[in-house]
Amino acid sequence: MLLKITDFSNQILTQITFELKSGQNLIILGSNGVGKTTLAKVLCGITPSGNVRIGNLDPSKIFGEKRAKLINYIPPKLEIFDEFMRVGEFLELGCFNHAITIDKALEILGITHLKEKTCRSLSSGESQLLLIASSLLHSANYTIFDEPTANLDPKKIQMLFSHFKESHFLQSKIIITHNLDFAYKLGFDILFLEDKRVKFHGASKDFFTQENLNKLYDKSVGKIENNIVVNL
């Protein structure tokens, strides 16, 4: 199965074309407001476009479990209308992966103690972990994570890192992030957006050279002893 977007344009993005093979991972980088989330929503069909194919299916045209299994999107913030829905009840929604139970997913992310709490009462970091737990239970062919580390403490970032690196509960991952060191250490292919377009698409080692970083990040980012740091 192949994820393919062909010549997509709207007010924010222009002529976006790339593909991602099943089982491969991708990191999407780019400055604030460049259209990373917009692109994610187009890919998963929340914003219908007609330019996306997964296998030979347009995700915005089909419904039911068949669609859900193609692609999933994990937003940066948990949004819940109901005041009283509990964490356990939330996770019962969309368990397409029968290889893992709700309790197991909670355990992996270290949030078993939250199971009976209402989703609305969670902190932003806890809700982010809850969303990641739901992605394991959903386990689509492609899962897009939109800034998954934004609200996490360093220990949780470590945990998520090893999870992204090794987990067999997730298939292809597309990760949107501003955490360059996180992106660098994962070593996945990079897609860099700038001025509405794909400015770089290629291997991690070609992206994270000091020369390339200087060019793309205007010397705000340095590579020091194999770490990517922001120059302050």
């Binding site: 069909g45 859900a68 999107y73 209308f81």
Partner: peptide
């Protein structure tokens, strides 16, 4: 209905029309 009680986007991603 429970999916609708989360958010439209979440319900959509789980396959609901």
């Amino acid at each position: 209905l429970r999916l609708l009680l989360t958010s439209y986007e979440f319900a959509y991603l789980k396959g609901v029309n």
